[in-house]
Design a protein around this nucleic acid. Structure first.
Lengths: 208, 208
DNA sequence: GTCTATACGCTGATAGAC
DNA sequence: GTCTATCAGCGTATAGAC
């Protein structure tokens, strides 16, 4: 059952069936452990069809990759377009990342887990793609407005999203067995307030 | 030039040359884009030799993997054996991770970046290997002694090390162009105190 | 545009001399 | 234990009918 967001066109296009099958197989076994025959079989099309549509196995992977980056980018854009504080934006992003991991596991797995350089040698790394740049942008805005601690953009951005991404990896690897959306509140607390318990006491004292 | 830590034995053993060559090639091109012939050529041995020592390409990868996990584990054990507070232990670990990334790039890349499941299907994910368990253990101890904010172990551990691991990935991907050891101090601050600037002000106010 | 049958290169692995 | 020569199978890609 294809579940990729498709452009206006028909939902059941051959392209979509092929890409969906490819995505699932690539995530299950890894790009190099999937033959074009495998994709062909799962998508219920002929090999000729695949080569007609995508030119090569690499071409198929590339199309799929672009498609997913775009979908991801739109998600980020949607959040940016909402009228939110920087902090709320970051949290919203973290939430969506966790939620995507649960509801569209393979998309996240392909974006975050797959080592594209191995089969798309000319592609820059994912983290330099548009959506990731947008994420870092948000962080920098936050530093400018004073909503986020000032410092090196890389360090701060890594701290903001590093915890979430780490949780996602653990979940994808099957080390964590429950939906990570359950961890959202606690994760956000840890990230913004830090893991040092002294800060807690400071706050508590203040509250008293 | 082989740079793997070798057991007591001679530093220039054939095993070591083969494993070092394999490590470099695997990291450069990915396991599946490296043929046994490639390894053989770089290590200046014959194919027969490789099959004699390791039985198969997968056997070579497995030996290499075990070797590196062990080396990593020893690093963690060394830190645990030192007489340090939990917090210092965590920081020491973070430092070592950053430093390893700079001085033994390929080892870290192979451990953190490589998707072992693709070529070692029966291997559990890296993050469930001994050294990672030890890292989570330290965090749990910290929660027990009150040195670390109490909470779900996964979330807290991900927050403690997530930032560092994220930085390492960015560095390995070539997105960050300077040694990440430079970021150590700031990273540790962000992690323990959180990225919320309000905490800073709280502290500052307190200090006044 | 879709299909089947086929070609051809590469790579993991072995045999057997030294 | 080390080497070279060789095999067998798989997997990408194409040719050509429909």
């Amino acid at each position: 059952m294809p579940y990729l967001k498709m452009q206006p066109v028909e939902m059941e296009s051959v392209d979509c069936r092929i890409m969906t099958s490819a995505l699932d197989l690539f995530v299950e076994r890894g790009f190099h452990n999937v033959s074009v025959h495998d994709v062909q079989r799962r998508a219920n099309v002929s090999i000729g069809s695949i080569y007609n549509h995508f030119g090569s196995k690499e071409g198929l992977a590339k199309s799929l990759y672009y498609h997913l980056v775009k979908e991801f980018e739109e998600m980020v854009e949607d959040i940016i377009d909402e009228d939110l504080s920087i902090r709320e934006r970051c949290n919203q992003l973290i939430w969506q990342l966790l939620e995507y991991t649960e509801t569209r596991r393979n998309i996240v797995a392909f974006m975050l887990h797959a080592k594209h350089r191995e089969f798309l040698p000319d592609e820059p790394p994912v983290c330099s793609a548009a959506p990731f740049k947008a994420m870092r942008n948000i962080v920098q805005q936050g530093m400018a407005t004073g909503e986020i601690r000032d410092g090196d953009p890389w360090v701060v951005a890594s701290t903001v999203f590093g915890g979430a991404i780490r949780l996602i990896h653990l979940r994808l690897d099957g080390v964590i067995n429950q939906p990570i959306t359950l961890y959202y509140d606690e994760l956000v607390d840890c990230t913004w307030l830090g893991i040092s318990p002294t800060m807690d006491s400071v706050l508590r004292e203040q509250a008293v």
